[in-house]
Design a protein around this nucleic acid. Structure first.
Lengths: 216, 216
DNA sequence: AGTCGATTACTCGTCTACGAATATACGTGT
DNA sequence: ACACGTATATTCGTAGACGAGTAATCGACT
């Protein structure tokens, strides 16, 4: 299904895109990515960059086109993208855009064990999350507006727009769940509550807990 | 900031939640998780489960409370959750719910190199994605309705509801981007187009490409 | 002219995740 | 009673991710 990439780390994708414009050495790649705010989109792991570039060379996506020694600095290998590398970049992009991958955000993992907490505590924590989300949205919107003002075309900002849209959607979802919890309209709330007060799981749940929750 | 967990793999969280109800051996944990559809939420990596449980024992979150030999089967170690394990479960859940973690979905990575493709191709691929998304939404909604019918309380389904909500939000976002692209109202579309036909990057972009796109 | 801290640039070793292989038992049709 | 597929249960090797460490240069201030 999902063709296995020779180099699977998404950092490699960023490298391909970066080296596409002109050959450069490894540290420069990192600098350029950082300058572009790529480090925000995907935080660059230093250790990984060097391993990844090495693997990319091994698989023929990059080639060393010589070294550049400057002053007494250690010599730096300059890498260029190969034809295979260009093909990989395009092909990989196609795959990422066309096929949604089942990813597992940590929030979902947290929700799946929500019953661990009391309803009161859950409410408080959701409120806290909402605060963080709103702040993030504000900050990212502002940053987006600023660079757009600087004349950066939308084409290079779609991923940020996507990020904001997802944050907004999450905030909206949390808000609506909170409404149900605080107004008491969330079904089974009383049972959940009682369970945490008395330690007795309501029988409608006990039975469920023993079999499985989501079949299929 | 984000306290480093002794065992960071989210699979460990699922294990804690599973062993919480009663002690069991490793293969059983996997079976129970699978029965609960946890394998959908977070696909279980066989190799990981054994390493993770071992690490959890090493860090005192689980303890071996004996072995159970049945027939000629290899002997199986039974693990129980410890007090520290219970504390970890609650504390970890708190963290996951209260603090949004910057995660980096692969779609965002794809979007960040969208310019690699021609606008026509991008449109086609977005349409393909939309098809997959709509199908996923349909399927998950159906599965959700079915288990809800079976009497599984909402409390145990919030993470699925969240998943559907996020899929819907993504679909909506893609749809609106597609509208702009197909109707031609997406700013800079002509330049993007020309660039891919002639190979000449419009100067408003060339300059940008050399500096960085997203400062902040 | 010496020191301090920041930046540049890279290496190394550890730890983890996970695929794939393995091996035995069980059930079921012939 | 045996052959074969499926479920049970686990081990192991390896590739990859990443933190932390190293070392040189540069600029600024003293």
């Amino acid at each position: 299904m999902v063709k296995k990439r020779k180099v699977g780390n998404l950092l490699a994708l960023a490298v391909l895109a970066t080296v596409y414009t002109r050959p450069m050495h490894r540290y420069e790649m990192a600098s350029v990515m950082r300058a572009r705010g790529k480090d925000q989109d995907m935080d660059i792991k230093w250790g990984s960059l060097y391993t990844v570039v090495q693997n990319m060379e091994r698989h023929g996506l990059l080639e060393a086109i010589g070294t550049n020694r400057e002053g007494a600095r250690p010599e730096r290998t300059i890498y260029a993208i190969t034809e295979a590398g260009k093909r990989e970049l395009v092909d990989w992009t196609r795959e990422l855009i066309s096929a949604p991958r089942r990813e597992h955000p940590s929030f979902a993992a947290g929700l799946s064990v929500l019953a661990t907490l009391s309803p009161q505590e859950a409410i408080a924590l959701f409120q806290e999350r909402l605060g963080h989300l709103d702040e993030s949205i504000r900050a990212q919107r502002a940053a987006l507006a600023e660079v757009a003002d600087d004349g950066v075309p939308r084409l290079f900002l779609v991923e940020n727009e996507y990020g904001v849209a997802m944050l907004e959607a999450e905030a909206a979802w949390v808000r609506s769940l909170l409404d149900e919890l605080t107004s008491g309209t969330f079904p089974g709330l009383a049972g959940w509550q009682a369970w945490h007060e008395t330690g007795a799981m309501p029988e409608e749940m006990a039975e469920i807990a023993e079999r499985g929750t989501t079949p299929d």
